Amino acid sequence: MELLGISIVEWVGYAAMATVLISFLMKSVKNLRIVNSFGCFLFVIYGILLTPMSKPIIITNAAIFCINMYYLFKK
């Protein structure tokens, strides 16, 4: 399936890339971690959707997601 000549898988990758880039514009570290976590989640989905699956993309972004969650919920 394609939208504007670009596959849905690629759109997920572009959305992940844009979200991670936008996260670095945040002044608040908390907001940066929240937006970056969403981008990492999208990158994990993208890595899973690729054929074949891209384990480096999945592992790296899952790890960053976990680190962000740790610092967001650390008391």
Rank of each mutant, 00 (worst) to 15 (best):
M1R: 11
E2V: 09
E2I: 05
E2T: 15
L3V: 15
L3R: 01
L4T: 07
G5I: 03
G5R: 06
I6R: 04
I6A: 05
S7M: 00
S7R: 01
S7G: 11
V9M: 02
E10M: 13
W11F: 01
V12S: 03
V12T: 11
V12W: 04
G13M: 04
Y14Q: 08
Y14W: 14
A15V: 12
A15T: 13
A15R: 01
A15N: 01
A15L: 15
A16G: 14
A16K: 05
A16Q: 04
M17N: 11
M17R: 09
M17P: 02
M17E: 10
A18K: 02
T19M: 07
L21A: 14
I22D: 00
S23G: 08
S23D: 06
S23M: 07
L25R: 13
M26P: 02
M26F: 05
M26H: 04
M26I: 02
K27S: 14
S28M: 06
S28C: 05
S28R: 11
S28W: 08
V29S: 14
K30D: 08
N31C: 03
L32K: 09
L32F: 14
R33Q: 06
R33F: 08
V35P: 05
N36V: 07
S37W: 09
S37D: 08
C40P: 03
F41T: 14
L42H: 05
L42Y: 03
F43H: 12
F43Q: 02
V44Q: 03
I45G: 01
I45V: 15
G47R: 07
G47W: 09
I48F: 15
L49T: 05
L49D: 05
L49M: 15
L50P: 03
T51W: 03
P52H: 09
M53N: 11
M53V: 13
K55M: 13
K55C: 00
K55P: 09
I57F: 11
I59K: 00
T60A: 13
T60Y: 10
N61E: 06
N61Y: 10
A62L: 15
A63N: 00
F65H: 04
F65M: 12
C66S: 15
I67L: 14
M69I: 13
M69P: 00
Y70H: 10
Y71S: 06
Y71C: 01
L72F: 10
F73R: 03
F73C: 10
K74T: 02
K74E: 12
K74W: 10
K74Q: 12
